[in-house]
Write a protein that binds this DNA or RNA. Structure first.
Lengths: 231, 231
DNA sequence: CGATTCGTTGAAATAGATCAATCCTTGTGG
DNA sequence: CCACAAGGATTGATCTATTTCAACGAATCG
């Protein structure tokens, strides 16, 4: 860990309120490392050695079984991933790879658990983060079980619009990954975009222009309890 | 809360190590109530007022949107549900109804958060529970994204066999709910059972006899990282 | 510039949903 | 105790959504 990185790390929400002493203990054995794109950071099934926190860039969480693979989530700064495995001292349930060049803070699992047990501010922050992640997965699960693939895409576009504050949204990563994340094949995603054309969805590469929000929303029927990340 | 219930409650894993004083504080405003089957306990979208803990019976968690409904999970003793909503002081993301006659301990959200902040043993237990629930949903999500419906059924049957320690398993609830839980229609579940006949799956009402475990397992390809509840 | 991967499109196959009819089980009230 | 109603479960027929396979154009990268 380079000393000049420390102040920046200290500022992260996740360390708000933690004592200097405990923060130092956490940092002593930690690494802040920059990885190129497409670097596999962890593999499912392995013991959870480090808590990973994305500081910059973007990390893809994915899972495999029996030759199939699916993107489970994309992690953006500043969020941890696989916190649950660390806390329970278990194996990872998902693999992770950088999607673009990324800076990742890696804190040894033992340190996390130690400080977790003695620093209320830190444990509180971790729990809030974990609870938030939990709710995120529940929403994703509802999304998958209660909607068709075209509906999932429509709602995703509305979400991007919300986040990017523009009617022309930019897909944040490859359509291939987006498809997998939405639980469909790339071919099917392509067709889903076509299906949405009558609702004012125009595709040019990774730029999507939404010309009829009302129609799109009527079709998508977004729900606070699935699509609102804040709730 | 009836005084004679207290000792039994005190024994629950979830309260292990908590101070008497804090335990009393939790119990003071709590209810231990018996509900008949098919009673709606909570509805998604409402503020999380109480932490619910299933002490006896069985509770179904389900979600709805836009006229569709899906069973998200079945909760058995002794487990809490919607802990994350309580901790984050948010609205419920799922609804809950008793599947059979059930005893449910209901602890006011404010008390939970208060004691959570001052009793390390309690907060630790809650966090472990939450982390476990999180991993449970991840496994369910992988199950849904990486497997066909017949594979999900096959693996579910193997899981029941494991839990019930018998080659003749009893489905723990209606096939209708099982179907929804597995992400399919009742008709499709019926056909999935037929598809599994060549692998030694014989259906008689809610009793399923597995006569060729090896063949079934070869077909199902169970994975520790999806099917093992303990990991 | 050539190789590779991504994205799109069409055709065909499959998985899964829906609709309808029927059977079976279960619980209720006479 | 029986008759009947109601809901659960199964089956067949059909329809729809989605995947797969194959081909090809477009973008990307060394």
């Amino acid at each position: 860990m380079r000393p000049d990185d420390l102040p920046q790390i200290r500022e992260l929400n996740i360390f708000e309120g933690i004592s200097d002493e405990n923060f130092d203990e956490l940092m002593r054995a930690s690494f802040l490392q920059t990885f190129p794109a497409q670097m596999e950071l962890i593999e499912e099934g392995e013991p959870a050695d480090f808590l990973h926190i994305v500081v910059e860039g973007c990390v893809e969480l994915f899972a495999s079984t029996n030759g199939r693979e699916s993107t489970m989530a994309m992690v953006y700064p500043v969020s941890s991933f696989i916190l649950a495995a660390i806390l329970r001292d278990a194996v990872y349930l998902m693999s992770a790879r950088t999607n673009k060049k990324s800076r990742v803070l890696m804190i040894p699992a033992v340190s996390v658990r130690e400080v977790f047990d003695k620093d209320p501010a830190f444990s509180k922050a971790m729990v809030m983060e974990l609870a938030n992640c939990y709710r995120g997965v529940i929403k994703e699960h509802k999304n998958l079980k209660l909607r068709t693939s075209v509906e999932r895409l429509a709602n995703r576009l509305l979400r991007y619009r919300q986040k990017q504050q523009s009617d022309q949204v930019t897909l944040p990563y490859d359509k291939k990954i987006l498809a997998s994340n939405l639980g469909m094949t790339p071919e099917n995603l392509s067709r889903a975009f076509n299906t949405l054309k009558p609702y004012g969805v125009k595709v040019e590469g990774n730029k999507i222009t939404l010309t009829d929000i009302e129609a799109l929303a009527t079709f998508a029927k977004p729900s606070k309890l699935i699509d609102d990340l804040a709730i």
